[in-house]
Design a protein around this nucleic acid. Structure first.
Lengths: 208, 208
DNA sequence: TATAATATTAAACGGTGTTAAATTTGTTGA
DNA sequence: TCAACAAATTTAACACCGTTTAATATTATA
């Protein structure tokens, strides 16, 4: 309520202004064409002002990443139906993840392939312990735990499996995005269907 | 033998000079730090000369891609032992592909993630018919054909499977490269081992 | 209202890819 | 051998880029 808070709020508003300008540019011209100068001119300020609200350009990009990543996670939760069997859950989850990612292919690509250390920290999924720190992996691991409830499988094995499913799915999605002009819709849905079949078969109890 | 041929040869030599300078920079400073001016200064010419031998910087990058891609393929063939059973072949092939790719991670990343249309044409693997046009997929599909020799599986299914293995493996490799600072050697080999197990289990006859 | 803090800008630095025109170098034919 | 032509190479510029420093304008505070 004091002026301190207002200041803080105004500062955030300006940051949002900058971020949304950057997001606009990303949508219109792609991630690589975001430039500090373009952002500045779009919000009708001088380029230098950007550095009053962000450390550097990378920090702006990082913010865009985080938002994109969150978007994927949000679209995921609605795919879980408690009534489903574990195997079915796994299929639906994977299917949904692929669908949501393909719907926002530009953002997905940007988020997942950006190689700045700060962003990688947010997208990394292969390090030990990722299945408890990464929401998407967490739900996946939970799904696998149900799948293996009658088997004697240690947790590190489940984590590995979750990470592998994530990495494989990531690979399929990125390739589908990159080759979108070369792959027909039919081929695409064949691939997705087949992928889910193969992946689930690969991790189903008894095969491990 | 006429001067025409010599001219042609000399031109190629200069192109090679430029390319190897670019490759050096890529090795030392990473793909993103290749610049026309740096190449020029390294070969002790003025920047403009580059454009006498290449259309633009992208063309230079494209050449680096093609070479990198070839390198992967070359390292692959030696992994095939005719005495192995199909399942074993598949495992070794995948293992080798991952190893070779990780050994040249910068190049792999560059080759596989470059999004210029010209390069995508060389790396694409999901379009219908890819398994006969792409050497790496061809050997993979052949491997699968052996694996399914006693089963009644149509060829389009084999192609789909090959493409899926390729895309999944691609995903694992890219993530391992991107997260190399976060993943320990132990975790890495666990992942690779587990990945091969899961993948092979997923495509083994009877599970499909 | 004066002072201190904050917001904003102008201007520059060093970097980038690329191009047009001028210049040097090399080749060829008379 | 020399002039004419063609090829190779450079100079210089254009239009961008990210970033920093110092000066200026604006706002808040005492």
């Amino acid at each position: 309520m004091g002026p301190k808070e207002r200041k803080e709020r105004e500062r955030k508003e300006r940051q949002e202004l900058i971020l949304s300008a950057a997001a606009e540019i990303m949508k219109e011209e792609g991630i690589d064409n975001i430039s500090v100068r373009k952002i500045a001119s779009r919000i009708e300020y001088s380029p230098a002002i950007i550095y009053h609200y962000f450390k550097d350009k990378d920090e702006i990009i990082s913010h865009l990443m985080k938002k994109g990543y969150q978007k994927i996670l949000d679209g995921l939760s609605s795919a879980l139906d408690p009534k489903d069997k574990p195997e079915e859950k796994l299929k639906k989850l994977t299917q949904r993840y692929i669908e949501v990612s393909l719907q926002m292919s530009d953002e997905y690509r940007t988020v997942q392939l950006n190689s700045s250390p700060e962003v990688i920290e947010h997208t990394a999924s292969l390090f030990k312990g990722a299945s408890v720190k990464k929401p998407a992996l967490k739900v996946l691991a939970q799904c696998l735990r149900e799948l293996y409830k009658d088997n004697d499988i240690d947790d590190s094995s489940i984590e590995l499996t979750a990470q592998i499913i994530a990495a494989s799915t990531f690979g399929l999605i990125i390739r589908l995005i990159m080759e979108k002009d070369l792959v027909t819709e039919e081929q695409k849905s064949n691939l997705i269907e087949h992928f889910i079949k193969v992946t689930v078969n690969g991790v189903v109890p008894g095969n491990l």
